[in-house]
Computed example of a mutant assay.
Amino acid sequence: MTKTIRMLDEHDYPYYKAMDTGFEFDYIKYVFNALVHENNRLYGLFIDDQLVSVGGYSLYAGIYVMLGRLRSDRRFMGNGFSTEIASHVMHEALNINGIRWVGGNTQEHNMSAQRVLEKIGLVPYITMYGALTKDTTVLESGAEPWQPITNPERKKEWLHQTYIQTGAIFPYECYYSFPASAELFQNEELKQWSFYENPEKTRFLITKYDQKKHHYLHAVYPWHDITSQSGLWETIATDYQKPLQQTNEETYIWMDLTKEKTRNLPANHPFELPSPWILYGKEIN
């Protein structure tokens, strides 16, 4: 028996397709080529000529690495291959110049993945629900939507005050959150994201389009008063119409909510709250 680990490329898709991962819907099969190019890498552990475990990473803003895509063939479980491939992937990622943080994300019920992340030295940062809804009517008050922020400096002021200065976790994409830094907020992204401010200029909101399994309007709001801010949900509902009208597929509003935020939701709230995600990570000196 020969065991090898190597980087995968698009020609390795048949090996991956032959794996028995047990996933009812495995998105990797649909985006395999994208995960082996540009800022994404996949690595595979082979026994002889059979792919038995996979892991990878994505690079963000030149300084963040998010580990993930851990998959193992069920016929080879119990051999420590998941930990071995995860350790190898992290070692490869840490060879990238300038990396300052490495992390991974897993659902709260996935104890085996949590053990793998802990074995390679990552610690839990925060637990968040990816709350989904298609209808915000219950949360609306009839107020006017908030005013857009068009001044780039005002956008940066808000981000510095609420995220960078505090080191808070910023939901950069659906499923992908990072400890905030100035590098995370590039000018091109600030142009693409929509920023809004309440009339009193005491609160702000970011909305941005994302696509993973489905289409999403990703709403980022850093405070706990999500049910008492007049006009907040009218603003989100208005922006939600854009992706809703542009796609003919499943489209949702996504908001990352801590457990504390979910406790503030009314009993008749409209959100689906799947198993929350735990963000693991560590800083690299």
Rank of each mutant, 00 (worst) to 15 (best):
Y129D: 09
Q147Y: 11
S275Q: 02
S53P: 02
N33Q: 11
V65C: 03
P179N: 00
G98M: 00
M255C: 14
N79D: 06
L184I: 09
I278S: 07
K191L: 04
Y57V: 05
V65I: 09
E118P: 00
H88V: 00
F185I: 04
T251L: 07
G68A: 05
Y176D: 13
I120N: 07
F178I: 10
A61M: 02
W193D: 13
F32K: 10
Q147R: 13
K261G: 04
L67P: 01
R100S: 13
N264I: 01
P276Q: 01
K17R: 14
Y125T: 01
L190V: 03
D20Y: 09
S177F: 05
I284D: 10
E153F: 00
N40Q: 13
Y280L: 12
L273T: 01
D20N: 13
A131R: 02
L273I: 04
F32E: 12
A143H: 08
S87N: 05
L45R: 10
S53C: 15
L59A: 04
A93D: 08
A237G: 09
G55Y: 01
F25H: 10
P270A: 01
E188W: 11
P152D: 03
F271N: 05
S228E: 15
Y15F: 15
Q186L: 03
S58W: 00
F23V: 00
Y125K: 12
L67Q: 06
F204Q: 11
G55T: 05
G78T: 07
E272H: 06
T227G: 00
T133Q: 05
Q241A: 12
L42A: 03
F46N: 09
E189Q: 11
N187W: 07
V138I: 15
Q246Y: 12
Y15L: 15
N285W: 00
R263F: 08
D210S: 13
I85F: 10
I169V: 08
D26I: 07
K259L: 11
E157W: 10
G55E: 03
N248R: 09
A18P: 01
F25N: 09
G104T: 04
E24A: 15
D9H: 12
I149A: 06
I253L: 12
T136Y: 03
G55K: 05
N248D: 14
A86I: 05
F81E: 09
E92H: 01
E189W: 14
K191C: 01
M255W: 09
C174D: 12
A168Q: 10
E283T: 14
T127A: 13
Q186Y: 00
K212F: 14
G167A: 08
M255R: 06
N187K: 12
Y30Q: 15
Y163S: 09
V36C: 02
T251R: 07
G103T: 04
E92G: 05
P124G: 03
W158T: 09
T133R: 02
E188N: 12
G121A: 01
V123S: 15
K29H: 14
I120G: 08
G281M: 02
T207V: 14
T251I: 05
S112N: 13
I63C: 05
V89N: 00
H11L: 11
I126T: 10
P222G: 12
E250I: 04
R75E: 14
H109R: 12
T166N: 11
L59D: 01
Y216T: 12
Y15G: 00
K191T: 07
K212E: 15
F81R: 05
Y43V: 11
A267M: 12
E118N: 11
V123L: 13
